[in-house]
Amino acid sequence: MRLTIFRERMAEHFGAAYADSFSRDHVMSQLGGRTVNEALEAGWEVKDVWRAVCAAMDVPAERR
């Protein structure tokens, strides 16, 4: 998954403004106590970060 697709999916699910805030501020245990942005900066695969967001935030299957 490309980062641009990931960002589009985040915006579709959360709305553009909240997706940005969520990525910056929401610490997730599924990402080892990191935010989305921190996990991506640490080298996590984009698809793994998306899967963690989907699992934690109950993203519907049709949006995964």
Score class of each variant (00 low, 15 high):
1 M>F: 01
1 M>N: 13
1 M>R: 13
1 M>P: 08
1 M>I: 09
2 R>A: 12
2 R>K: 15
2 R>T: 14
2 R>Y: 00
3 L>R: 04
3 L>A: 15
3 L>G: 06
5 I>Q: 14
6 F>V: 09
6 F>G: 04
8 E>T: 03
8 E>R: 01
8 E>K: 04
8 E>G: 00
9 R>N: 10
9 R>F: 00
11 A>L: 08
11 A>Y: 03
11 A>F: 02
13 H>C: 05
13 H>R: 00
14 F>V: 04
15 G>H: 08
16 A>N: 10
17 A>I: 07
17 A>E: 14
17 A>R: 12
17 A>Q: 14
17 A>P: 04
17 A>D: 15
18 Y>P: 08
18 Y>M: 06
19 A>D: 04
19 A>N: 03
19 A>Y: 01
19 A>E: 04
19 A>L: 06
20 D>Y: 04
22 F>M: 02
22 F>R: 14
23 S>P: 01
23 S>Y: 04
23 S>I: 04
24 R>K: 07
24 R>I: 00
24 R>C: 04
24 R>F: 14
25 D>E: 15
25 D>F: 04
25 D>K: 02
26 H>A: 09
26 H>Q: 15
26 H>P: 05
27 V>S: 10
28 M>A: 14
28 M>G: 01
28 M>L: 01
28 M>W: 13
30 Q>R: 02
30 Q>K: 09
30 Q>L: 02
31 L>Y: 01
31 L>K: 07
31 L>W: 11
31 L>R: 11
31 L>P: 08
32 G>P: 08
32 G>C: 07
33 G>C: 05
34 R>P: 02
34 R>D: 13
34 R>T: 00
34 R>H: 03
35 T>A: 02
37 N>S: 08
37 N>E: 15
38 E>P: 05
39 A>Y: 06
39 A>D: 05
39 A>K: 03
39 A>W: 03
40 L>P: 13
40 L>A: 09
42 A>E: 02
42 A>S: 00
42 A>L: 07
43 G>F: 10
43 G>I: 06
43 G>T: 06
43 G>A: 01
44 W>T: 11
44 W>Q: 13
45 E>K: 14
45 E>S: 07
46 V>G: 06
46 V>D: 09
46 V>E: 12
47 K>L: 13
47 K>H: 01
47 K>P: 11
47 K>M: 05
48 D>N: 10
48 D>C: 15
48 D>G: 11
48 D>A: 03
49 V>Y: 08
49 V>Q: 02
50 W>P: 03
50 W>K: 13
50 W>G: 08
51 R>S: 12
52 A>G: 05
52 A>L: 04
53 V>F: 06
54 C>P: 07
54 C>E: 04
54 C>K: 04
55 A>Q: 15
55 A>S: 12
56 A>C: 11
56 A>W: 07
56 A>R: 06
57 M>L: 11
58 D>A: 10
58 D>G: 14
58 D>I: 11
60 P>D: 09
60 P>G: 03
60 P>Q: 06
61 A>T: 11
61 A>M: 10
62 E>T: 10
63 R>M: 02
63 R>E: 00
64 R>K: 12
64 R>W: 06
